Simulated scan of single mutants.
Amino acid sequence: MSSLLTNSSAMVALTTLRGINDSMATTQNRISTGMRVADASDNAAYWSIATTMKSDNSALSAVKDSLGLGAATVDVAFTAMDQTVEIVSQIKDKLTAATNGTVDREKIQADIEQLQKQLETIASSATFSGENWLQQDMGADALNKEIAGSFTRDAAGNTQIENIVVDTRTTVLVDTRSTGTNTGILTSDLMGGGVDPTSATDITITTGDIDSLSVKLTPAVGPAPAPVDGITRKAIEAAIEKTFEGLPEGTGAGTQGGFDAAAAKTVAGAVNTRLTALTGGSESFLDLDISTLGNNAVDNGILAAYIDVVDGQLSAITDAATELGSAKSRVDMQKEFASNLSDAIDRGIGQLVDADMNAESTRLQALQTQQQLGIQALSIANSGSQNILSLFR
């Protein structure tokens, strides 16, 4: 039935064209923004997930910045510690050269003093952004250094920052505290514990051959603590060995017939007196001084003790450099992982909300064709009224 008032064909064609135009608007919006899900109205679930992950990725970006700062701080400390190993090795070499009785120990000490000052400079200069891990107040400063390592969210939606912890208790070169026991590698007292060098009165010979001598020191009063290796004990052992080297244990102390505990005790007393005069009872790595040491058994024993404790501190510094190297490697790995994780999250978000430009461009061409056909269909539908008019001619 043809009606002048109601054009059903035009209505259908108009509805179809309106739908095509809406689809085209959606496609054009996706092409212009590059997003398939631009807001919650497009896909509420995907939009919610993507928005949360974008926020987490932003936090992860801040973590990457923190890791970069931490990596730089560790790198500065590691570089300084690596240089410290080299300088301490040089000091050990110069002390070893001083064992030659013909060299001028005062001139060698002048070189050692400059190296000691360089160690102080290295420790004080190993600073990045106000952080110095090699020079700290070990009685007041927080020695566990925390570097933000990752940002995580559990299934319940709870977030957490996980930190990389670097324990610097064994890496501090200079302990700046003014009270309490100094434990810095370069500033700790190297004299040794468990014995007072001014009051040691008892020496026990536990082997019968000076080449495998073992000396035990105990204080004059009170319970005898376990002796701790240090300059005092090492110097006494070395001085006794140098005084009686090659002689069997026996009587007639100090003679070619042998040596005994009394003779060893005399040497120990001489070492104690000499050390007290040299050090005042305490000696750190930065205070070692061989300028006044002579070429005799007591002073040579003290020099041998210096070399021994310097070697021990070199071992401690090497261990500290190893720890910092491991921390540096860990931070670098986490930094790389955080970067890769951020990229993976970006890709995941893209899978949810990004538009497929190839598909959208193809869809746009198809919609444009449909739009043209829809316009043609509407034009044909509207021409029906003109056909009715021709009936009345």
Score class of each variant (00 low, 15 high):
243 T>W: 12
258 G>M: 11
255 T>Y: 03
262 A>S: 15
241 E>V: 14
259 F>C: 00
255 T>G: 04
239 A>K: 05
247 L>S: 01
251 T>W: 04
253 A>W: 03
266 T>Y: 07
252 G>Q: 11
252 G>N: 10
257 G>V: 06
249 E>S: 07
251 T>E: 14
252 G>R: 13
255 T>W: 05
260 D>H: 07
261 A>W: 08
243 T>E: 15
249 E>T: 10
247 L>H: 04
247 L>R: 06
262 A>K: 15
253 A>L: 09
245 E>H: 15
257 G>I: 01
245 E>Y: 12
243 T>I: 05
267 V>F: 11
248 P>D: 01
252 G>V: 02
250 G>T: 04
264 A>Y: 06
251 T>H: 10
254 G>V: 02
252 G>W: 13
264 A>D: 06
266 T>W: 02
241 E>S: 07
249 E>A: 11
248 P>L: 01
249 E>F: 02
241 E>T: 14
266 T>D: 14
265 K>W: 03
238 A>N: 11
253 A>C: 09
239 A>W: 13
248 P>M: 00
266 T>S: 14
237 E>V: 10
240 I>R: 03
240 I>P: 06
239 A>D: 08
243 T>A: 10
259 F>E: 00
239 A>C: 13
259 F>T: 00
242 K>G: 05
240 I>G: 03
241 E>Q: 15
256 Q>P: 07
241 E>C: 00
244 F>N: 00
253 A>D: 14
242 K>I: 06
240 I>A: 07
264 A>K: 02
242 K>D: 09
257 G>P: 03
263 A>R: 12
243 T>V: 09
250 G>Q: 12
246 G>A: 09
257 G>E: 09
252 G>P: 08
256 Q>E: 12
245 E>R: 15
238 A>M: 03
266 T>C: 07
250 G>R: 06
249 E>Y: 11
266 T>E: 15
265 K>S: 10
258 G>T: 09
252 G>D: 08
245 E>M: 05
240 I>Y: 10
246 G>T: 07
239 A>Y: 12
243 T>D: 13
249 E>W: 05
242 K>R: 15
264 A>Q: 11
245 E>Q: 15
245 E>G: 15
245 E>F: 09
262 A>C: 13
254 G>E: 01
239 A>G: 03
261 A>H: 08
260 D>I: 04
259 F>R: 02
254 G>N: 09
266 T>R: 11
256 Q>T: 05
265 K>F: 01
265 K>Y: 02
238 A>Q: 08
248 P>G: 03
266 T>K: 14
253 A>E: 10
260 D>N: 14
265 K>V: 01
261 A>N: 07
243 T>Q: 12
267 V>G: 12
266 T>L: 12
248 P>W: 02
249 E>D: 04
253 A>Q: 07
260 D>S: 06
251 T>G: 12
247 L>Q: 12
267 V>R: 08
243 T>R: 07
252 G>S: 13
244 F>C: 03
237 E>F: 04
261 A>R: 13
265 K>I: 00
237 E>A: 04
237 E>M: 06
247 L>T: 01
242 K>H: 05
256 Q>G: 10
247 L>W: 05
